[in-house]
Write a protein that binds this DNA or RNA. Sequence first.
DNA 1: ATGCCAAGTTATACTTGA
Length: 260
Amino acid sequence: MRIATWNVNSMRARIDRAVAWLERSDVDVVAFQETKCKDEQFPTARFEEIGYQVAHLGHSQWNGVAIVSRVGIDDVERGFPGMPSWGDPPAAEARALGATCGGVRVWSLYVPNGRTLDDPHLVYKLEWLKALRAAGQNWLTADPQAQIALVGDWNVAPQDDDVWDMAAFEGSTHVSGPERDAFNGVVDAGYADVVRPHTPGAFTYWDYQQLRFPKRQGMRIDFALASPALASRVKTAVIDREERKGKGASDHAPVIVDLT
DNA sequence: ATGCCAAGTTATACTTGA
């Protein structure tokens, strides 16, 4: 089985590329982030036409997460238990969608950005990751053999070599100690980064500005974390930087994990 | 090396993104 995660940065703007990518990538399950549309605007039929079932969660033009699968899509869950709210009045955002596909509990996650280190959005980001850690711990306590994939755009670069130049990120979000601690909290709860060992030094995101992609100046912020039972099934993983090339690309590349 | 910001809105400037 092959599982992927991809921050598509608007599904309506990218639907032709997304379909073409699916048709050449031979993936069974894809978790999308930043679909940037409401449920009724999501191009479900385009995926159904090529043999995939769809689950989508979107409330507005912001955020939005989806899972498409050709190996079943059951027990769809919108948001995880304890997920923090945001806004005035506070409401759950479209940042987490769970579904069981081919025996794997897949979570498509779009972690809050944080904006700046002194912004309330950063507090929200840290609380969101703390709550995800707690939920993840509970899932594994309930079933230590569960096959769980926590995949998506984590908006954290956990190591210095996950950005092209640490000096360029002085005082910025994504690389701060509290953000890294929050990310590693999920790892400590039992979820391993199963892509890094197969993709040393690789990035998953490159800013549209200043020729960051051709200059190879990117960030590793999209991750596939796996419970112990799932991690033991990982054969290999790749970051598909080909998909970042050309006109109309997302600023994130798909991340693909191959399972036995 | 594969190209010099992009997507959304009730818009023609602004927010968000990382």
